[in-house]
């Protein structure tokens, strides 16, 4: 198990310059960015899971019913 900051942790620190972002972080960020773009595109296209309007149509009734 790699240790905390006191160990080299893959950034051997031989140079004083800040190490760049690891490849796995870059790949992770690209994947997340892609998912966000996909999510926004689907919403703009109106392709929400479960369709439109149900929650808005009935949520008020649910809360009114709960208050009664």
């Amino acid at each position: 198990m790699t240790g905390p900051v006191t160990e080299a942790d893959g950034d051997r620190g031989r140079s004083a310059s800040t190490p760049g972002m690891p490849r796995w972080v870059k790949v992770f960020c690209v994947v997340v960015a892609g998912l966000i773009v996909l999510f926004v595109a689907l919403h703009l296209a109106g392709l929400r899971p479960g369709g439109h309007g149900f929650h808005g149509r009935h949520a008020g009734a649910a809360r009114t019913g709960a208050a009664a």
Binding site: G50, H55, R57, A62, R63
Partner: peptide, 28 residues
């Protein structure tokens, strides 16, 4: 939304189609 689903599920006037719609959102 989760709480509303439970309250609406106890309301027999709410149709199955509407419950299915909410169910898909919960599943996703």
């Amino acid at each position: 939304m989760i709480g509303d689903a439970a309250r609406l599920a106890s309301d027999l006037t709410v149709s199955r189609a509407d419950l299915n719609s909410l169910g898909v959102q919960l599943l996703v």
